[in-house]
């Protein structure tokens, strides 16, 4: 083929080639961002931030499950026995030590995201040997404050941000 001998070696890394290559690579990199970022939560998803839950009809020893951001949230009206059991558990027995008071703003109301911290299944209520929650997927067991006691899950059930708007209405999120 013609002329290849006359030109400088095309692979020669002089400034122009490096600058152009770097510039082009920058363009491709920045151009890829919208293609990735489009998968993040969109504006309509972000807008569905909070819900209000009426808890007036939840009696002692009863629970309700509400949908918050596509996930179940357990709202449990704990019995005195459950609270006592939780408060009296020594912290050194816990995998992820946390005081009962840090788990519930009002001791009788426990509000948790009902998603097992292992791989995301929904634990069953009032089950397992700690009288709390039991995840059927891989046998993670939680106590009456939703703290992990045995099984593969690494953390306690997540407590969402919530506030009591009144004695009977909780705002979650």
């Amino acid at each position: 083929m013609a002329d290849t001998s006359k030109v400088e070696e095309p692979g020669r890394r002089d400034f122009l080639y490096i600058a152009t290559g770097a510039f082009g690579a920058l363009g491709v990199g920045v151009g890829a961002w919208p293609l990735i970022d489009q998968m993040n939560p969109d504006a309509s998803v972000k807008a569905l931030a909070s819900i209000e839950v009426d808890i007036s009809s939840v009696g002692e020893g009863e629970s309700i499950t509400v949908n918050w951001r596509g996930k179940p949230v357990f709202v449990r009206h704990r019995t005195a026995a459950e609270i006592k059991l939780s408060v009296e558990t020594p912290l050194e027995d816990l995998v992820d030590p946390e005081e009962d008071a840090a788990r519930a703003e009002k001791p009788e109301w426990l509000v948790m995201v009902g998603v097992c911290t292992h791989l995301g299944c929904i634990p069953l209520g009032e089950a397992g040997k700690y009288n709390g929650w039991f995840c059927p997927c891989h046998n993670s067991t939680y106590d009456t404050a939703g703290r992990i006691r045995s099984g593969p899950a690494p953390k306690n059930l997540e407590i969402p941000k919530y506030t009591f708007i009144s004695d009977t209405v909780i705002k979650i999120g």
């Binding site: 293609l35 489009q38 504006a43 309509s44």
Partner: peptide
């Protein structure tokens, strides 16, 4: 992000234009 349903296709395109990150650009 698009929904191929006669009742939702138009709105889903506008959802792309208005809500999806960079949707208008795409």
């Amino acid at each position: 992000h698009y929904t191929p349903h006669a009742d939702m296709a138009f709105s889903s395109v506008e959802h792309i234009m208005r809500d999806v990150n960079w949707g208008w650009l795409l």
